[in-house]
Nucleic acid binder design. Structure first.
Lengths: 224, 224
DNA sequence: ACTGGTTCTAATGTATGCGTAAAATTCAAC
DNA sequence: GTTGAATTTTACGCATACATTAGAACCAGT
């Protein structure tokens, strides 16, 4: 997940680097950090770091507190529930809209490919690759839904639970049958059955929510 | 809607002032502005203005473009459709969740009051007051839903369409029967009927979406 | 030792200046 | 007149310095 793109500006660079530090856990959940420290760590002045932090705050990844440095936003089971509830609604609508658009096989190709990648990853028990393909699948789904705001929101939600997801990825049971659901979703979209597509995606997220919350509780992961 | 709170920092002050300038149309949709100009206009240096603009960009109110100044984000009928679709889903869920919570009459009092205010405003044909009460009603609804992310998102959506709403407010038919729907929603929540509450709110937003898009088209308002 | 107020410190909030790169302009060649 | 390169302009990106203030440390009086 390391973001090695060359960012043309220091601010952009700071954003990607801070994101990596947060997602990798090097900046732990709930920990406080000074602008100056972060600036030195990234090898630039406070200004671009500050701007990066402001943007990350809008995305709910950090909290800038007046004269108290920034806190890496903790992620609790309640947050997980909130995120999944939002995803259930918005991805459900996106699925329905995608189905209503009479998409060609070419349009659906990326999703089909993502499913294949997930299955390949499951076959060799590579959970990171599975997660990456899953990301692409959901991203494509909302993109095909055609509502840019939904795409933006789901992207932010995905980022907010990235740390938690990383942990869960390795304590959850292997996602064996999820690709079967994914196929059914693509079929419903291809068939133009909006109601079915919505129902499948809602079900997918609702079940996942229950599973993940159960896992978090069982492992006493009250904050990530 | 003028925000006269004393902001302790210049950045906060810049945010509220820029918002007012945008919502009032003094910074017109699609127009470009230089950081320097805005800073001078607000009587402060570029730094806090820049930070304010970054925050407003996260909320979709402006777009900062490399060395081209900031553009006040235009709002088109497509945007309106997107916003209403998001609101339909998220407020629908919020309504259902609020209904599932066995709320007391005290909890519901703000919504009831808002309905009364809307009716009073309609009675004297004061559309601004009606809009303000309507804002409060929807804000309370999502708050009672208990999902902070939904509250945040709906707030941002409301801001994005604020300009458009202001125009529409005066060309739409008077909202005579909307308070009847609102009452039914509150009743459903009070009765704990989650499905009905969700259905009522979804219907409310769906109908409004159709009405507003029709109005925009009829008046050739393709950008606001 | 405890409490109240004062001083001090340090981190952020803000201003400012300079370097840079993109856009605009000019000018020359065709 | 048009095109394209060189030049100039200019607005932002970023570094830096200073002001402000929240919180810590400290001191004196009880």
């Amino acid at each position: 997940m390391s973001n090695t793109e060359t960012a043309s500006s220091n601010t952009l660079l700071a954003i990607t680097q801070l994101r990596d530090l947060i997602f990798s856990g090097q900046l732990g959940a709930g920990t406080d950090h000074l602008e100056g420290e972060l600036a030195e760590r990234l090898g630039m002045s406070r200004t671009p770091v500050r701007e990066a932090l402001l943007r990350l705050e809008c995305q709910g990844l950090v909290e800038v507190r007046r004269r108290k440095g920034v806190r890496i936003t903790p992620f609790t089971p309640k947050d997980m529930a909130e995120v999944y509830d939002v995803l259930t609604e918005l991805e459900g609508l996106a699925a329905a809209r995608a189905a209503a658009r009479n998409l060609s096989d070419d349009d659906l190709a990326p999703m089909v490919q993502a499913i294949a990648d997930m299955e390949a990853a499951v076959a060799v028990c590579n959970r990171d690759d599975w997660a990456a393909a899953d990301d692409i699948f959901h991203c494509e789904l909302v993109r095909l839904g055609g509502n840019d705001r939904i795409s933006m929101i789901t992207q932010i939600m995905a980022d907010q639970m990235r740390r938690a997801r990383l942990v869960i990825l390795y304590i959850r049971p292997a996602p064996m049958h999820s690709s079967k659901e994914h196929r059914k979703l693509v079929d419903a979209i291809r068939a133009g059955d909006a109601d079915l597509a919505k129902q499948i995606q809602r079900q997918h997220r609702t079940v996942a929510k229950g599973l993940l919350l159960q896992l978090l509780e069982r492992h006493h992961l009250s904050v990530l």
